[in-house]
């Protein structure tokens, strides 16, 4: 019997598979399809202090081996998430969830995290300082080590839950930012968010995405994500949740060898809504193939 369990700052997961924020809503679309309790955990839709509609449509463009989205943190706001979404989620998911938090100011990040701190369902806070689709916030906090550290400190001050900072790959040196977060007290790092990208429609000769650019994700970005997780693992002691282009059990093992303690699956859910369940079922077989008895023992094994 193989052991697929891993631990994120004390939060023990049966397996390292976590659907990524923004690709799994608040869970119940998928709960119609399968029992989502098989998941290690899941990171719910990026939540902000106030409700947001997000960006104009079109928000989606296809790419070779991936897609671009520019949703722009559409969500009902943290209070409605707590009063409406979390109770519904509780009916289909009995494990702890990861609360993904977006923001436009230090105060907003802190306030939203403080509100979520009281939620027993929330096992961990994932602070998104890397959304490429919102202006004056989002990614601007994630591209400057000082700002990243500042967000980390403010959030840590208002919660007792583990705080993971979600980093942007759209930077010159992601290692520097990861270290700044660790020094500021982050319990872990989530990486990577989407890569800024665009597509142009040859018929209209204009960008397909209404917002012109968006976040590129999907299988194509796996090598970039692996490289960055590998680099950050060398530089920090805190755990890493690795994501970017994962769509198979093999990709999961590869990401863990690079240094991830757990992984998130994003765009792949949108194409194959059963992909997380299929990966979880396939993991033991894939582990056996490579003579692995325990997943937690292979974290960072490629170093």
């Amino acid at each position: 019997m193989v052991d697929t369990s891993v631990s994120l700052s004390g939060l023990v997961l049966d397996n390292p598979i976590i659907p990524a924020s923004g690709t799994f809503g608040y869970g119940y679309e998928y709960a119609e399809l399968y029992d989502i309790n098989c998941l290690g955990s899941f990171s719910f839709k990026g939540t902000t202090r106030e409700a947001r509609f997000g960006n104009p449509t079109p928000r989606i463009a296809e790419c070779p081996a991936g897609m671009i989205n520019s949703v722009g943190l559409q969500n009902p706001g943290v209070e409605k998430v707590i009063s409406e979404e979390l109770p519904k989620l509780k009916e289909c998911f009995s494990k702890k969830v990861i609360a993904n938090v977006g923001g436009f100011s230090l105060d907003e990040y802190a306030e939203t995290c403080q509100i979520l701190d009281s939620q027993e369902q929330v096992g961990l806070l994932e602070v998104n300082i890397s959304c490429p689709n919102v202006h004056n916030g989002g990614m601007s906090f994630g591209t400057d080590p000082k700002m990243a550290a500042e967000v980390t400190k403010r959030v840590k001050a208002v919660t007792t839950k583990p705080v993971y900072i979600k980093l942007s790959p759209n930077v010159t040196d992601i290692v520097e930012i990861a270290k700044a977060c660790e020094d500021a007290g982050a319990d872990g790092i989530s990486m990577i968010n989407t890569l800024l990208g665009m597509r142009i429609d040859l018929k209209t000769k204009k960008p397909i995405i209404a917002n012109k650019m968006g976040g590129f994700s999907g299988s194509a970005i796996l090598p970039v994500a692996l490289r960055m997780v590998y680099q950050v693992y060398d530089a920090v002691k805190i755990p890493i949740i690795g994501m970017g282009g994962i769509s198979t059990a093999k990709d999961v093992i590869e990401m863990m060898l690079a240094g991830a303690t757990a992984v998130q699956i994003g765009a792949a859910n949108l194409v194959n809504p059963f992909v997380c369940k299929e990966i979880i079922e396939k993991l033991p077989e894939e582990m056996a193939k490579y003579n692995l008895n325990s997943l937690s023992e292979i974290i960072g094994g490629a170093h």
Partner: peptide, 11 residues
């Protein structure tokens, strides 16, 4: 994106 309500791509 997905066609089943998960990604908020077509709001």
């Amino acid at each position: 994106g997905c066609g089943f309500g998960a990604c908020m791509g077509c709001s």
